[in-house]
Amino acid sequence: MILNAKNLWKRYSRRGETFAAVQDVNLEALPGELTVIFGKSGSGKSTLLSILAGLNAPDEGAVSLNGKDLYSLNDEELSRVRNLNIGYVPQNDASLPNLTVLENVILPAALAGLEDAEAVAQRILNSLDIGQLADEYPSKLSGGELRRVALARALVLSPEVVIADEPTSNLDDENGELVFRILAELSRNGTAVIVSTHDPRGTEFGDRLYTMKGGILSPS
């Protein structure tokens, strides 16, 4: 058992009214499994993934990684977990504009104090078919290319868990297929992969399928 979420609740206020973006969610992500969560925009998928990634503390419930409650850790410890154990691909294509693509990808390694991650980073970029963009700056890249840079960055330290929020949005068919294949291969190699998507190919590649609606997660 690697990533375990129990009785998760997350509430937000909007125009004076409180609503639950995540309602009593239980989820287990096992090594070697690709878990796919479907759902429309606003269903709570992104919020759930952010909680699982250690970025967004739930109002109730707990997330544990290898038995350790993530949200009981201090900032240094939780940051270390996010750095080494979890690779998170956010829905937005955020990157550091003053670093090259290669520098963006090796950023997690730099934060971990590891040098010589360039070769690994280049290999990952090559596998995502953007190896030739290593020395470019993010401003020169398309949305689809930026998505793949974010994915490469999440994979550079070979984390135990990869959490990807809409990884194939902005990608054409060919590259979308490529991304799913890579995620599937990762899971086959022992990584626990959790993906949220609208992409119907998720059913084809996923081992465990869920649907999220109104904050409630249910098996598909």
Partner: peptide, 16 residues
Amino acid sequence: KKEFAVIRVVGGTRKK
């Protein structure tokens, strides 16, 4: 802000 958020996401501490 987004740049700093990315650094947090990939494991940068608040101190960093």
